[in-house]
Design a protein around this nucleic acid. Structure first.
Lengths: 132, 132
DNA sequence: CAGTATCCCAATGGATACTG
DNA sequence: CAGTATCCATTGGGATACTG
């Protein structure tokens, strides 16, 4: 009754879905099919290696397809599948939440850090909390 | 027009939100406030260290609160904040998608792996794709 | 263009034991 | 009960260079 029951399978699926780039790549492909280097441009910070890994995973999970288009110099494009499309709206909702709440989360962090540093002048804030 | 524009800030926020346990912990707290060991029971595989880390992060991001309840032996409970609550429905949607599609994703994987192993008898499937 | 191949480091997170 | 302290293994992922 407490909502969803996650056994280890759910846990692991979550891992693969939410790696560092998957959500962003998936969103880019929701928009329209794209090619490898288009995606690289769209996600400026991604390295070719990471992008490859990410695309293979999404493909393996059935969320996207890799298509070899027989044009003159063959083009390779990635496009979302029906399964991937079914994730679109939950995905968009999450991403939208993130952009809509960037500032308030940021504020919460400053707040937290300040309270921490004020109350205990001795111990400094663990820096693992600081990476944005 | 391609939807959301993610600069590095969005990227990093995503990191912190989607660590290995955050979503699950957050969901557990959406249900009702819980105490440390309650959460441990609810997430059987989590270690105390990971749970602590996760809770501190969520707290720092303003999604949950840590409350010291002055009962006889003091009780400590974690409860979701309004900010955290605002994430509830996108979160539930994502988790629901996952449970609803566990089997079809699983099928897609078997499919992918089989096609791979069939087409190239030589190279075996990279095992990093195998961890469920 | 669409990747692969290496090298390498930082960080996540498991296991375990201990504590106010 | 609610953590903290260590130690340690894995790995995700960046940088860079190379290739069919």
């Amino acid at each position: 009754m407490s909502g969803l029951d996650f056994d280890s399978d759910g846990r692991r699926l979550l891992d693969q879905l939410f790696d560092k780039w998957s959500l962003l790549v998936l969103e880019a492909l929701c928009d329209r099919p794209r090619r490898f280097n288009e995606l690289r441009q769209h996600l400026p910070a991604i390295t070719p290696k990471s992008l490859t890994t990410c695309l293979r995973r999404l493909e393996r999970n059935g969320l996207i397809e890799r298509l070899v288009v027989s044009t003159d110099p063959v083009a390779i494009e990635y496009r979302i599948t029906d399964l991937g499309r079914s994730l679109e709206s939950p995905l968009q909702a999450m991403l939208r939440w993130v952009v809509d709440h960037l500032d308030v989360v940021e504020a919460a962090r400053s707040d937290y850090d300040e309270r921490r540093t004020r109350s205990e002048e001795t111990r400094s804030v663990p820096e693992w909390l600081h990476r944005t």
